[in-house]
């Protein structure tokens, strides 16, 4: 086994496995940048996965499935936004409830849809020309999902919006100090609503990717904890869309390697590797930025009520 095929395998799989993680993480970054933690990612993802599959299977259009998944994810997030922004409920409790609700509802609606292969999965794309480049071609441009490329482009766009536009300043200020933003005339409630819903849209797409592309079929509980990895990656990426690319790819690569390396290293140890690595990096980051919360929005998790304090 030469190093080139190793590299192609690792990068190719990192991109594939990293895609749903990247979409989910980008969405959670926006919600949290506006100051709202949403632990409901797993629930929104599974609802997206089911609705994408059901629509794609019924209509034969996987693209339509993804779009519906985005809407469903957004609507699910709207529940969270209403509870936490308008009613000022505890964000952690509401998010957990959303996850349980999503898993339960998708499981219930999904009865009878399991055990059926999707008749038309989202086609893989190979970029003509670029795929011919030695090494880089097969690594990056062969047989990947359209959503992989879309996710990478989206990350760049979201970074630009967050750091280079007025909208970005508004979002960040709402997450840092909603009272100040409010005093300056920023509509805190609207921005929080929009960011949470946007997070849901991206989580819905992430789930849709799983059921119409990554593994084109529906099974109850098929997100299998990916939503929680997204929560960890959001912190890991220091709430930065560009760093989210690195985090998602790194996690994807480690996940792939945890199976590739089983021939040489104990599988129990490898199974831990991606998670142990995440803990290690978080710990190091925590030590390095002692005192500062390393990119965490100042008002994260705190409901905002006008006129208090």
């Amino acid at each position: 086994m030469d190093w080139q095929s190793w590299l192609i395998g690792i990068v190719g799989r990192a991109l594939a496995f990293g895609t749903p993680l990247l979409w989910g993480t980008l969405g959670e970054i926006y919600a949290e940048r506006a100051g709202v933690v949403n632990l409901g990612v797993e629930g929104m993802m599974i609802l997206g996965a089911f609705s994408a599959f059901a629509v794609a299977q019924s209509t034969g259009h996987p693209g339509l499935g993804i779009m519906v998944a985005a809407v469903v994810g957004g609507v699910a997030a709207l529940i969270h936004a209403f509870l936490t922004v308008t009613l000022r409920a505890n964000q952690y409790v509401s998010g957990l409830a959303l996850t349980m609700f999503g898993l339960g509802l998708a499981g219930l609606l999904g009865r009878g849809w399991e055990g059926i292969p999707l008749r038309q999965p989202l086609p893989d794309v190979t970029i003509p020309g670029l795929a011919k480049i030695p090494l880089l071609g097969p690594m990056l441009f062969e047989g990947q999902s359209i959503l992989t490329y879309a996710g990478l482009i989206l990350a760049v766009v979201l970074w630009i919006i967050l750091y280079r536009t007025r909208w970005g300043i508004s979002i960040r200020s709402v997450g840092e100090s909603p009272a100040t933003a409010d005093a300056l005339g920023v509509n805190v409630f609207l921005i929080r609503y929009l960011c949470v819903m946007f997070g849901g849209v991206l989580a819905g797409v992430a789930g849709g990717f799983l059921s119409v592309d990554y593994r084109p079929s529906w099974t109850e509980g098929m997100t299998a904890g990916m939503g929680w990895i997204v929560i960890a990656l959001t912190i890991f990426a220091a709430w930065d869309p560009l760093q989210a690319i690195g985090g998602a790819l790194l996690f994807g690569a480690l996940y792939h390697l945890s199976y590739r390396l089983q021939a040489w290293l104990p599988p129990e140890l490898l199974k831990l590797m991606p998670y142990a690595f995440a803990i290690l990096v978080l710990a190091i980051a925590g030590l390095g930025g002692a005192g500062r919360r390393r990119g965490a929005p100042g008002a994260l998790g705190v409901p905002y009520a006008r006129g208090e304090k």
Binding site: R13, T219, A224, Y259, R260, Q262, P267
Partner: peptide
């Protein structure tokens, strides 16, 4: 290759790819 779960489609997929 072992995935250490009875049900985990993503793990099964990556193990098969490996």
């Amino acid at each position: 290759r072992w995935i250490y779960e009875w049900f985990n489609p993503a793990a099964a997929k990556e193990a098969a790819e490996a």
